[in-house]
Write a protein that binds this DNA or RNA. Structure first.
Lengths: 202, 202
DNA sequence: CCAGAATGATACAGACCTGTCTCTTCATTG
DNA sequence: CAATGAAGAGACAGGTCTGTATCATTCTGG
């Protein structure tokens, strides 16, 4: 609230709070949340420590802001991919996993930020962990809606299988080198989708 | 070396070093490696700090010992499962994923210790990270051998797909609740295996 | 030009963490 | 019994991390 107001009053000068969030997001994603300290963030973003604590109540709060922004970005990515196959949920699902396969091969790829956050922050009361789990539930809902729309025989099973595959792609792309992982991801998704929706249609 | 000797000379009294490793393994697995400090380990295991540092050169060394022991346990689990289907690599693969599905539903399940370690320790020079990645490569080799023995049309692709699924099961079982996840894991594996090995045989 | 808000720079407190050192206790062995 | 060596207990040093407080600077609006 107040942050947004203050940013508005200053106008279109320079993003004060933005620099912090950009730097924090980059560092958190690349090196991990616990591994990156406040001092590193302020040094890298060229900001005073008090500027950080005026914009974010605590490091936890900054982590939450990072995850919330990542959720928006991921949702936008999802929308972009499915928009390429309007009215064809089956093709949309396949396209999501094809795009995922490309993404995990990208040199900047470092796993799923939400899965990593949940792995680092095990305390169930941690708000960032809560955010990460909420995001996974949201992904599950969207997958389920696609499975239903595609006419899967057992939508719950298909979306569980696909989310397994998605999580596996995130984990594997970071740690393992599965060769051209994109092929394995896309082909596995296609096999599961076609198996569940009936080979015949489309 | 020397640790084993000393443990041998004392005889069958009480495992001194064992208590440390048991406690550390439990805490590292449940709460994460970075989240558990030396002080917590010695307090929980009822051991003096110097006893820990006499048996392990550093915390990193203790983490490596934890991962090495986990590798042995996981290899034993693998051997037990495949031994139930001698001479039938296809059934062996399916049995592995059925057992994995049961494991991720277990209340003590907290993800794959190696994946979690790799997620927490991002420094490529960290010996524990090296161990974790080596373990993943070993799993991949064993999966590949099974895929070849089962007569998969493209063994590399099948084993990549199955390892994706395996990593996904580890990640999903911890963070998400995929309902009766075991069914999704086993069914997805069966679909991929049957698809790659030909529906006809077995 | 001036008032006021936002920001930079820096020091500091308190907590935690790793690893070392010392001293004591206890058990085994000769 | 005496000697030896492992193990418990706890203090301590050095470092890092989060979060706060203080002071100087810059930029904006009137």
């Amino acid at each position: 609230m107040s942050e947004i107001e203050s940013a508005g009053t200053v106008g279109m000068r320079k993003p004060a709070r933005e620099r912090i969030l950009d730097t924090a997001a980059d560092l958190f994603y690349r090196e991990g949340i616990r591994a990156v300290g406040i001092d590193t963030i302020i040094a890298r973003s060229g900001v005073a420590k008090m500027s950080l604590y005026r914009n974010f109540a605590s490091k936890d709060d900054l982590v939450c802001a990072y995850l919330e922004r990542s959720m928006l970005q991921q949702a936008a990515w999802w929308d972009r991919v499915v928009a390429r196959h309007p009215g064809d949920p089956r093709a949309q699902m396949k396209a999501l996993f094809t795009a995922l396969g490309h993404w995990i091969d990208h040199p900047k790829f470092q796993g799923c930020p939400f899965t990593s956050a949940a792995a680092e922050l095990r305390d169930p009361a941690n708000p960032a962990r809560t955010l990460a789990l909420a995001h996974k539930r949201m992904v599950r809902e969207r997958l389920r809606a696609l499975a239903v729309a595609a006419g899967a025989a057992d939508p719950d099973r298909l979306c569980a299988q696909l989310q397994l595959l998605m999580e596996g792609a995130y984990a594997a792309g970071r740690a393992l080198d599965l060769g051209p992982g994109n092929q394995a991801v896309a082909s596995a998704a296609a096999a599961l989708i076609d198996g569940a929706c009936g080979e015949g249609r489309k």
